[in-house]
């Protein structure tokens, strides 16, 4: 059950990886223009490997009894398929703003071939169900509620991965959770000015009111 990042990444299929890179890059991009605010500010989710966080999470989230015993149902590849199906429909409907139709039509990962803004637009049409649900891969096919749930999850999951300490687990980041070790101070925490976990702060500025208990009754002073 020991799992190294190399092992796990080598099992993930390259189209899935490319799709999730494109996803997290659209949500938390690399931003060289923010360097004026600090050397760490340009770093984005791809540099922090947050696409791996998303793939790992989606592949470790669901167990069902399908035949005779409980089995893990991996969701990363189908979810990449969902984004790519959405991207293909965005382009086909002429709603993509910056994409060259031809370049995308032949791509196995049309989502990744879109501009970041069009990737966000893809998620928007998916979550509003302005797409042909019958053309989506299972388990999303004809299941609009599940599509809405997962599109929302892809956004908040990326943000949680990026701005929590997860990237700081470094080479242990894809280990089973009890075997992850913090290797450096998380960049997302530096970007936000969060000082890290603490044992306490001398932060009492006052007490506005107090409950006093006597004889089974409370009064407020």
């Amino acid at each position: 059950m020991m799992q190294t990042p190399e092992l796990y990444a080598s099992r993930a299929d390259p189209h899935t990886v490319a799709t999730f890179r494109a996803l997290v890059d659209a949500i938390v991009p690399y931003t060289p223009e923010l360097a004026a605010y600090g050397a760490e500010q340009p770093i984005g989710a791809v540099q922090q490997h947050v696409h791996e966080y998303m793939i790992w999470s989606l592949d470790h989230t669901l167990t069902l009894v399908l035949d005779y015993y409980p089995e893990i149902v991996p969701l990363a590849a189908p979810t990449a398929g969902l984004l790519n199906a959405g991207a293909a429909q965005l382009v086909a409907s002429g709603q993509a703003k910056y994409a060259a139709q031809g370049a995308i039509a032949g791509s196995p990962v049309p989502f990744a071939a879109l501009s970041p803004a069009d990737r966000i637009r893809t998620m928007a049409i998916l979550e509003k169900l302005q797409i042909d649900l019958g053309l989506l891969p299972p388990p999303y096919r004809d299941d609009g509620g599940l599509v809405k749930f997962i599109i929302d999850y892809l956004n908040r999951g990326t943000m949680f991965g990026n701005y929590s300490e997860w990237p700081g687990y470094g080479t242990t980041r894809l280990n089973t959770p009890t075997r992850r070790r913090l290797e450096f101070f998380p960049i997302g925490w530096r970007q936000t000015g969060y000082p890290g976990v603490s044992k306490g702060y001398r932060a009492v500025r006052g007490i506005l009111m107090t409950i006093v208990r006597e004889g089974g009754k409370s009064t407020i002073v």
Partner: peptide, 21 residues
């Protein structure tokens, strides 16, 4: 909340879709 939780609750989690769109 700490930044990871704060980011997702404030900016990543919505009934209203994307602000910019």
């Amino acid at each position: 909340l700490s930044p990871g939780l704060m980011a997702f609750l404030t900016y990543g989690f919505s009934e209203a879709g994307f602000d910019a769109l």
